[in-house]
Design a protein around this nucleic acid. Structure first.
Length: 445
RNA sequence: GGUCCCGUAGCCAAGUGGCUAAGGCAGCGGACUGCAACUCCGCCAUCGUCGGUUCGAAUCCGAUCGGGACCUCCA
C-alpha cells in the first residue's frame, strides 16, 4: 500500500504503527445543517480507504467526530428557535442517514465534543502548563511562536501570511495566527473550566479526542483539502507541543467537488444536499470514485447522469449473473480459478493499493463486467461466470457499491421457465406477459 | 503579497521520460433478436500556447494564457 502524505508531499509506503492495525481519524461534520454533496466526498472516500484496508486483512479502528458545539450551531438554533441539543441531535441523525444512503458504513466510533469536555479541558490545561498557551480574559489561545515547526503541514511561513485577509485581527492575541483553544461564552451551551464558562475551540477538540481515544500517534488522519490550514496545522502544533510528534504518520486530504453549472454555484447560494439527490445514491458514489481523490471532482447534470447510467449497466450485469447462477443453483458452488479473471482482480487491487486510485480500479471492474456479459451470451459458461461474479462481488465490497438481491422462489423459477417455453413455442403474447412480470420482480432487466 | 493545484478527444478521466496516449459516456458502422430492451464486435485524441533540456517528453525546466483552492473554524 502506497499513500500520498500531505506532510511529506510525497507518496510513501504504508507502515502501520502496530502490525495488522490501522488507527485512523477523519474530521467529522459540524452538525448544524444537512450535508451537501461536497461533504459527501470524504464520507465516501475514507469509507473506501477503510474497506480497502479491511480487505487486505487489517483491523481498522475508524474514528470520526461530531462537532456539536460551535458558533454556527448557536446561530442556527436561534434561527430555528430550538435549543442547541435538539438541533445537533436532529442533524447527527440526518448525517448518519445520509452516510447510510451513500453506502458508507455508520459503524464507527463517533465521539461528540460535548461528551469530551473533561479530556479537552485537561488537554488545554497541559498546553498552558507547558507554556504553549495563554489565557486572556477567559479565552485561551495557542501561542504559535512557541511552535518552531508551525507551518510544516501547509508549507507556510507564519510571518508571510496576509493577516486578516478574511477575518479581522483579534488584538487579544499575541500573534494573529494564534488560535483559540477555549472561548469565553455568554450564550448558548457552555461548560465550566478553570478559565470560566465557555466552550472549546474546534482545533483542540480533534487533537484532544485523538489523544484521549488512541493515547498515541495514529496512522492516518484525513479530511478535506480545506482543512490543511489552519485546522490540521493547528492539530499538529498541539500534538507537537505535548507529545513531540505530528499526531499522525500520514495526513490524507481529498480534493473539492466543483459544480461547474453556474446556476448551482455556491455564490448563488444554491447548495445541493445529499438528501435531495434524486438519482440512485450509488450512481453518485460511482461518480465520486471515477476521479482520483486528490483531484477536483467535476459535478454537473451530465456527469451525474453518465455515472448513474453506468451504475445501472453494472448493476444489470451483476443482477443477471446472480439470477442466471441462482437458476441453476450454482451461487454457493466453489468457483474455479481462471487466469483472465485473476488478472483483473489483481490489477484492481494494485490500483487500490496505489494511493487508492479508484479511477484505475474502475477500469478493471468495467473489464470484468464486460467479460461477464460475454460469458452470459454463451450457452454453457457457468463456471467462469461464477468466478467472474464472485470477483465482481469482491470489487463491489471494496468500493462500497451496494446491491441487494433476493434469491429466486419456486414460483419465480416456474415463471422463468414458462417464459422460456412460451418463447420457444412462439407464443409471444404470453411471453411478453411473463417478461413483464419477471421484470417487475427484477429477475429480468 | 504568500502557499499550492489543474489545463489530455463533444463530455468524464487514467497515464508524470521510452512499445502504436488506459477506460467510460456520447457519436458512427456492424452483429444478435419475434418485437423491444439488454449485450457483443469495430471505428473515433499527439496531450492549453511558445521556447528549452534530452537519443527520446503529455510527462522535466522556463515563459505565457486560462481555471481553481487555501491564508483563523469551509469537506
Amino acid at each position: 500500500m502506497r499513500i500520498f502524505n500531505t506532510l511529506t508531499h510525497s507518496v510513501e509506503p504504508f507502515k502501520p504503527i502496530h502490525p495488522g492495525t490501522v488507527n485512523m481519524y477523519v474530521c467529522g461534520p459540524t452538525v448544524y445543517n444537512f450535508i451537501h454533496i461536497g461533504n459527501a466526498r470524504p464520507v465516501i472516500f475514507f469509507d473506501v480507504v477503510r474497506r480497502t484496508f479491511e480487505y487486505l486483512g487489517y483491523t481498522v479502528n475508524f474514528v470520526s467526530n461530531f462537532t456539536d458545539v460551535d458558533d454556527k450551531i448557536i446561530t442556527r438554533a436561534k434561527e430555528l428557535e430550538i435549543d442547541e441539543i435538539a438541533l445537533t441531535q436532529t442533524f447527527i441523525k440526518a448525517f448518519l442517514d445520509d452516510v447510510e444512503r451513500l453506502g458508507s458504513t455508520t459503524k464507527y466510533l463517533a465521539p461528540k465534543a460535548t461528551e469530551y469536555m473533561q479530556p479537552i479541558t485537561n488537554y488545554i490545561a497541559q498546553l498552558i502548563d507547558q507554556g504553549f498557551a495563554y489565557e486572556v480574559d477567559g479565552d485561551v489561545y495557542f501561542d504559535v511562536k512557541k511552535s518552531p515547526e508551525y507551518g510544516i503541514l501547509s508549507n507556510r511561513q507564519i510571518d508571510e501570511q496576509e493577516l486578516g485577509s478574511r477575518i479581522a485581527v483579534n488584538d487579544k492575541k499575541r500573534h494573529p495566527l494564534d488560535f483559540t483553544l477555549w472561548k469565553k461564552t455568554t450564550e448558548g451551551v457552555k461548560f465550566s473550566s478553570p478559565w470560566g464558562e465557555g466552550r472549546p475551540g474546534w482545533h483542540t477538540e480533534c487533537a484532544a479526542m485523538i489523544d484521549d481515544i488512541f493515547g498515541e500517534k495514529i496512522d492516518i488522519h484525513g479530511g478535506g483539502a480545506d482543512l490543511v490550514f489552519p485546522h490540521h496545522e493547528n492539530e499538529i502544533a498541539q500534538a507537537n507541543a505535548l507529545h513531540h510528534h505530528h499526531l499522525a504518520n500520514i495526513w490524507m486530504h481529498n480534493g473539492h467537488l466543483q459544480i461547474d453549472d453556474s446556476k448551482m454555484s455556491k455564490s448563488e447560494g444554491t447548495v445541493i444536499y445529499v438528501k435531495d439527490l434524486t438519482v440512485d445514491p450509488m450512481g453518485f458514489r460511482l461518480l465520486t470514485l471515477g476521479t482520483y481523490y486528490r483531484a477536483p471532482l467535476m459535478f454537473n447534470d451530465e456527469t451525474l447522469n453518465t455515472y448513474t447510467n453506468e451504475w445501472e449497466r453494472i448493476k444489470r450485469t451483476y443482477s443477471q449473473a446472480f439470477y442466471a447462477l441462482d437458476l441453476i443453483e450454482m451461487l454457493d458452488s466453489e468457483a474455479k480459478n481462471y487466469p483472465d479473471i485473476e488478472i483483473l482482480h489483481d490489477r484492481f487491487i494494485d490500483a487500490m493499493t496505489d494511493d487508492f486510485n479508484t479511477a484505475n480500479a474502475l477500469t478493471h471492474l468495467y473489464a470484468l463486467v464486460k467479460l461477464l456479459n460475454q460469458k452470459m451470451r454463451e450457452e454453457d459458461a457457468f463456471d467462469i461466470m461464477l468466478a467472474a461474479f464472485n470477483n465482481l462481488k469482491i470489487m463491489f465490497n471494496i468500493l462500497g457499491l451496494r446491491i441487494s438481491l433476493k434469491r429466486l422462489s419456486k414460483a419465480d423459477r416456474h415463471m422463468y421457465h414458462a417464459w422460456k417455453d412460451a418463447r420457444k413455442n412462439r407464443d409471444f403474447d404470453r411471453a411478453d406477459q411473463l417478461r413483464e412480470k419477471l421484470s417487475e420482480r427484477g429477475i429480468l432487466s
